[in-house]
Design a binder for these strands. Structure first.
Lengths: 360, 360
DNA sequence: GTCTGATCTCGAATCGATTCGATCGAATCG
DNA sequence: CGATTCGATCGAATCGATTCGAGATCAGAC
């Protein structure tokens, strides 16, 4: 197979010429936007078939109409990371549903890596920002300059950006209260990446306040509302392995927490694994709380106590919003709420007596 | 937030007028493709900044150049299914790597569902077909008519379609031989979807020969090379749940197979679960062989015996090929090979004596 | 026979850039 | 000082369609 030059593709003018009509009439025949007699229409179509004409060139159409029919979805991560996160996938799926139904294409873009330049030059009618840090500011500026409507899922409020949000803070606080009600006092948190570098490790107040990650910060704040002094360990990504690393760091010590809040279910599963490795029993010795409600395997026979959000609905909402804006209609921002689902990975703080008994 | 009409976006002509140069010079100043004095270049850029001009319109650029800088990736499934399959995700990741590095955008399209119409009208410089059945024929015809280069990953050979292939048949045969060497005689297979309807159930010779799914057929053939009469059950998708359903159907009988070949690792995990539910021990009573080498969790403490393919490399190859073709260069088809990785889910057929002993 | 109105078709402008060949002024060379 | 060359700039054509207002054709009405 090679790419050698073939005869030039026929255009509408050629078809019109062969059919013996003007280009404008031929255009009408294809789009059906005007009164064209059946006879001429048939002639045009026949000529098109003869020339093997595939229909109006989408590029020319787009230029004329001023719309490309493409919506960009900008992911912060590399694609492989994004696809490994069930929440991202669900949101993407929701967006794709809406775009597909409305006849829009979905252009996948990442903000980092070599593909970043594409963001500035890709033909799009609007963009959806996924889980974006303020690092995306420059992207937003570019988009705004190009006059593109912008929808952001869980991002810090920005002018001219329609937000699809989640009650991260309130929901986390609710989860934390659940732990407090169970008697936990020594609680730690494994956070989602907190900065652009995805740096792993203990979270100092400095790093915490310098955070550029909306979701992680909000969930952390919700925790602080209940446990102001909880220890925090920042994971390098929403991945089971990262959760396990963080879990080991938090648990492999003399004075360890009795409960860990993980900012995603994947992280929670990782923490669970860490506990298994260290022979710490869940929930007797350690309660684990997740976030997302993704129903990940790997906890059997446990079911994770977690904060359930409807990521698919978020995706749908974002898709609908960006479509409306692209069409010049209005769209409203939205905030989704999530709810606590109690599983078997959280329980009351172990009675010290019983604990002693077991330890002997 | 609303979409009310704003002042018209400035174009190159406006910038040129403000800078006091001709549009052609302004264009040169932006693209750097011709000799422009530093002074005028600065004037043009200053004018652009004043007008808040975001740079040349990608659509107009594309029309003129005849290229859009976008490559379409056509998935057969709904996105949510595609994203749940680790092999698809890896291939997509490989494609995305290459496209990003070469400055191309990745347009996600599905062949089914409401978005199908987009395929015909999306502006693209080439397409990659993912795991495609011959159902895609009509898509291929459209693309060819539009003069788009087509790369297909694991598809039946078609004219004008560059194939990136896998040794599905030979590799499966190798796996089957492994089972035969272990003494298995009663072997069954759980296949990937075999037709466009993704119909679930026992595979009759009729349905088998009418298969429109390349990968499933080839892997099935490889099995038939060793076990011509193996029973086959067709799953509704490459998903753990589907594998479990199929596993139950195959195992919940008096005369059950001693080994099951699953055509994907996800299906294999499902079969393993079915065995667990039925209290069938692996590998003593049942050997399980997968395909892909995806390292899926959920088999602990076992490691799956499986046929390992390098899906990422396949994606890279497809990406490179479609880029080359889009640029009018030549590209070569490729066939990747996979290898058997022996884990702990396959073992020798149980000694009848020992079996009896256990059963009493 | 002419006028009215409806129906179909066409010409020309337009979308926003790129690009080739021409032009023009200045600098270099003999 | 005239001829040549080179660099910078410009005009105009082009990419492939859409769209609007104008013109043409024809039937029916008066």
């Amino acid at each position: 197979m090679n790419g050698e030059a073939t005869q030039p593709r026929p255009n509408l003018a050629a078809v019109a010429a062969l059919a013996g009509v003007s280009p404008s009439t031929a255009s009408l025949a294809f789009s059906g936007a005007g009164p064209v007699s059946e006879a001429t229409k048939a002639r045009v179509l026949k000529a098109a078939a003869e020339l093997n004409y595939a229909g109006p060139d989408p590029l020319a159409q787009s230029l004329r109409r001023g719309r490309s029919g493409i919506i960009g979805v900008i992911l912060e991560d590399r694609l492989r990371d994004a696809f490994r996160d069930p929440v991202t996938v669900q949101m993407l799926d929701g967006v794709a549903d809406e775009l597909g139904a409305a006849g829009f294409g979905l252009l996948l873009l990442t903000e980092t890596g070599p593909a970043a330049t594409n963001i500035a030059v890709a033909p799009m009618d609007g963009v959806v920002l996924f889980g974006c840090s303020s690092r995306l500011d420059s992207t937003v500026v570019t988009m705004r300059q190009r006059g593109l409507p912008i929808v952001a899922i869980e991002a810090d409020p920005m002018p001219d950006v329609l937000a699809i949000d989640l009650d991260n803070r309130a929901a986390t606080a609710r989860g934390a209260r659940h732990l407090r009600d169970l008697g936990h006092e020594r609680v730690a948190v494994v956070t989602l990446p907190i900065d652009a570098q995805h740096s792993v490790g203990w979270l100092t107040p400095d790093r915490e306040s310098a955070s550029s990650a909306h979701t992680a910060s909000q969930r952390l704040r919700g925790l602080r509302d209940i446990y102001p002094d909880a220890e925090a360990f920042s994971a390098g990504g929403s991945l089971i392995e990262e959760g396990e690393l963080a879990g080991l760091a938090l648990l492999n010590r003399a004075e360890r927490p009795t409960a860990i809040i993980a900012q995603s279910d994947l992280l929670a599963v990782g923490v669970f694994r860490a506990a298994q490795h260290l022979n710490i029993s869940v929930p007797e010795e350690l309660s684990i709380l997740g976030f997302d409600g993704a129903r990940i395997d790997g906890l059997a026979p446990h079911t994770l106590t977690t904060i359930v959000q409807d990521a698919l609905a978020k995706g749908h909402a974002a898709g609908r919003a960006v479509i409306a804006l692209a069409r010049g209609e209005v769209a409203e921002p939205a905030t989704f709420t999530s709810e606590l689902r109690i599983g078997t990975t959280t329980g009351p703080v172990e009675d010290p007596l019983r604990r002693q008994r077991r330890e002997t």
